[in-house]
Design a protein around this nucleic acid. Structure first.
Length: 285
DNA sequence: CACGTCACCTGCGTGC
DNA sequence: TGCACGCAGGTGACGT
């Protein structure tokens, strides 16, 4: 499920439910969900930690605790939700953190007995969790945030020129730019009118500027629509109702009505409009 | 460094 | 119905 807008949506939604709560204990129902440290150390260290802040970096959800950072990556099918502690675990729950409300929030405590849980549910078991006091070790190699000030047209133009890769796989590379996934990459390339197979070092200054604007536009739109929900994973968003090309092979381009094509690039489904995103280098090269 | 392949997992839709 | 197959929003570890 989650690309940047989905993780951002979840973080914003959970923040008010989590801030100030104390983690009582952890129920690790699928141990391999834990990337580090060991199960034993994890259960010791997480106990009694207070949640100070809830943020996001790339596709990582970050809980800033008293003494550690808890990093959660949802990968393909992960989801995070708050549940009343009295409700029994569900089939694909991988990690459940029992939370205690802060003494000051007496109203909340009165409603739910003071006990709620943060549940990491992940059907396909690809998701991972890290508890660490040095989060840079996990996040350090990520590229810039597309919605940050450092992601300028000039930076993008320079960075594209240093590489010799097709745009689609390069934009999916989290060490190049952080947060894009298969949906938003296809959507951004369509908005920018760039073919997914265009080589990065052939992109002009103007095209780099358009691509930068397109990436930011589509990510903001995704966030504004609370992300995209497809199939059984992650309910709540509505961006899936506004896809221009993603998952629309055979349907018509919203700009020019040409039939949208689907190809495989780097083992990933790739959708584009052959007219809007025609490129001489690719089609005749 | 680029790029191909497989691996990690479960579940859903399709076609026979 | 059953069954095989292809597909899925991600990444990491290989080998060439």
């Amino acid at each position: 499920m989650p690309e940047l807008p989905e993780v951002e949506t979840i973080a914003r939604k959970l923040e008010p439910e989590l801030i100030g709560k104390t983690i009582l204990d952890a129920d690790l129902r699928w141990p391999r969900t834990l990337a580090m440290p060991s199960v034993k150390i994890f259960k010791q260290q997480i106990k009694g930690q207070k949640i100070r802040e809830v943020t996001r970096r790339a596709k990582f959800f970050i809980l800033h605790l008293s003494d550690f950072s808890l990093l959660i990556h949802l990968r393909m099918s992960g989801d995070l939700l708050i549940r009343n502690s009295t409700i029994r675990p569900e089939k694909h729950d991988r990690l459940i953190l029992r939370l205690l409300s802060a003494p000051s929030s007496a109203q909340t405590a009165a409603e739910d007995g003071g006990l709620s849980s943060l549940v990491f549910n992940d059907t396909r078991k690809f998701g991972r969790v890290w508890l660490t006091s040095t989060p840079e070790e996990v996040l350090g190699r990520l590229g810039p945030e597309p919605l940050s000030r450092e992601f300028t047209a000039q930076w993008l133009y320079n960075a594209l020129g240093k590489r010799h890769r097709q745009l689609k796989p390069l934009l999916l590379d989290q060490t190049f730019l952080a947060g894009l996934g298969n949906i938003y990459t296809d959507e951004a390339l369509h908005i920018a009118k760039l073919h997914p197979l265009v080589l990065s070092d052939s992109v002009t200054v103007e095209q780099a500027r358009d691509l930068r604007e397109a990436v930011r536009k589509v990510l903001k739109e995704g966030i504004r629509r609370n992300g995209a929900s497809i199939d059984w994973v992650y309910r709540g968003g509505e961006f899936q109702n506004h896809f221009r090309v993603y998952d629309r092979a055979g349907k018509s381009c919203p700009v020019c009505s040409t039939e949208i094509k689907r190809i495989i690039v780097g083992q990933r489904s790739t959708h584009y409009c052959p007219k809007c995103q025609a490129d001489a280098e690719v089609t005749h090269g």
